[in-house]
Nucleic acid binder design. Structure first.
Lengths: 327, 327
DNA sequence: ATTATATAGGTAAACGTTTACTCGGTTAAT
DNA sequence: ATTAACCGAGTAAACGTTTACCTATATAAT
């Protein structure tokens, strides 16, 4: 069923059908309007959005590329994006980059070919600055900052001060030998977080010891092996600041296995506040990012760019301490 | 940049450009092929997939509608789907139904308008059988079975025998008072699971007590409050079979709070084997579904339907016991 | 010498919409 | 009575591809 066939059945032109379907029926009589609508209903007509998109040069579709939906942080981000997009009449194409620049680039190309109206990118850690935005598709960087020369929006969180506060919190709780487990500093956020940890230590009169720092990935495994490593290399460690909550989960597992009590013997603080942290044993104290909200903001920002509105291209959120059982 | 402009620059027809871009260059001289390709590269030409789709009536896009990506079960399903789709050159549009038929229907309509080549649906629990598949878009039901009259593919797991085995396992481990916490039986899977639990009890000479059964949702909260309820209503309970892993997580939290030891005092078994189960404290014993694989199979099946191949329209996987710390 | 086949490429319609523009007719204003 | 404004609807081009079909030349086969 096409608009033309509907038109024939209703004895009107395809223009008329188009108008009534799209509610541009100011100059359509109530009689024809009803008749057309009835036939549309009766015939089970489904509008062809791709034909429409070709004409109006707009797909009402957004692309989102994230490292991995199975990661709770990104699934919440994705959910925030999807919900906000849906409210505004947009669909989203989901792409998992696995933190690989090659996949990321490939996806961005495909999204541009599919003529998405905008791309929301949680860049892989080793992402380079330059994107061939050949089509000039509007883009906003989410969570992961990138020094990019194109005009792109940015939604971030203050990582350095977040980890700074987290570390200070551990110190205030009485920790004296505080370790740090996180990802390699191949990305800006990783650098900023490590920097926050070191700064806090120094500001409070502690020393930074490389044996107290374990860097690998933002994964549970890193937390697990990192904790083991810290325990092996140091006579004592009574607190550890984790680069994110996944790492905290892994660290807790390692401590549990070693029979080390949390929080009595060692205190743990995470970062992100993914929703599972409230259900672990013990529940994890963490520096919360407004994850879902950031997803929402990303679509607000990109829609604003798409609509050509005057837009503030950078929005940085604050983190917030959520104290639970691991401190 | 369009194919026509490229054609002009290369002094060939748009047909020729199209042919070289799509590799249908059997009858194109090496010279023109190179020239066209160079100009394409130089001009940063990006093919317009929506124009192509309109012509070839195929979008290389699949729709997936699931209750919620933030749920680890569905995010793994989604990941399996996305990976398999990507390998076959397909993109996916992600839709969260929140378990609501209204959203589900709305999304299916939109997906059809966007002319996706197929729809993979993890139906909401109260989904009704009939879908207005006006366009006749190929469809496969994933995880959630539905008695549907249209010709749709189905990927499922043997729920009844899965829970049956889980319950038997608890019995074999010495449990005598086994509770069951799960979702309302508003869906086929919920019915089958409850049925498996009851059957196991009866087959082994136990009685089914309604006070030992708590039904609500497939959520952590249900597990938490359900466990509390079971404890309140029964003199003793030494084992509980959970309708899924989220419920198990909630139940464990409740037990931990009550200072009841797992697995000594009460044993817990979950269902699904979402990846977080290995990292909880204690790690959760569960009946595993091949979640990721089921996602992959769903796209294999739908592509096979799309390509008009002779296809077995039902695939049911077995569950597998994974013994960990809660039993 | 004729015919067949392979090579290289062009023409133009079609995919299903939207929309600027046109065209009568009716009503209201001058 | 003329003009202006409003109604209701139709015409046809355009969006960017693909592809069936056509043309023309060169080579090979009979």
């Amino acid at each position: 069923m096409t608009i033309k066939k509907i038109a024939k059945l209703a004895n009107v032109s395809s223009a008329t059908v188009s108008k009534v379907i799209n509610g541009k029926d100011k100059y359509i009589s109530e009689a024809t309007r009803k008749r057309v609508l009835e036939i549309v209903e009766r015939e089970g007509y489904v509008p062809n959005a791709v034909a429409k998109s070709l004409k109006v040069k707009r797909t009402k579709t957004l692309g989102i590329v994230i490292p991995d939906v199975m990661n709770l942080f990104f699934s919440e981000l994705a959910r925030g994006v999807e919900d906000a997009a849906e409210k505004m009449g947009y669909s989203i194409i989901l792409c998992n980059s696995d933190n690989k620049v090659s996949k990321e680039e490939k996806y961005i190309q495909i999204l541009q070919e599919k003529m998405v109206d905008g791309i929301i990118l949680a860049a892989s850690e080793s992402s380079v600055s330059k994107y061939f935005n050949k089509r000039g598709t509007p883009m906003v960087l989410l969570d992961r900052d990138l020094s990019v020369d194109d005009q792109v929006g940015k939604i971030t969180v203050d990582n350095e001060s977040g980890i700074y506060e987290a570390t200070c919190f551990l110190i205030n709780k009485g920790c004296r030998d505080i370790g740090y487990i996180s990802s390699e500093i191949s990305s800006k956020i990783s650098f900023q977080r490590l920097s926050g940890y070191k700064k806090a230590l120094l500001d409070r009169g502690f020393q930074v010891s490389e044996s107290m720092i374990y860097l690998n990935n933002y994964t549970i495994e890193t937390g697990y092996y990192g904790m083991l490593e810290l325990l092996k290399n140091n006579i004592r460690v009574d607190g550890v600041c984790c680069g994110n909550d996944m790492i905290a989960i892994g660290a807790i597992k390692a401590l549990n296995e070693k029979g080390i009590n949390i929080p009595t013997d060692v205190k743990i603080i995470g970062f992100d506040d993914i929703y599972i942290t409230q259900y672990t044993e013990p529940p994890i104290t963490t520096m919360a990012q407004p994850i879902y909200k950031m997803g929402e903001e990303a679509v607000k920002m990109i829609l604003s760019i798409i609509e050509g509105k005057e837009t503030e291209l950078a929005k940085v959120f604050d983190t917030k301490l959520i104290e639970r059982g691991t401190t």
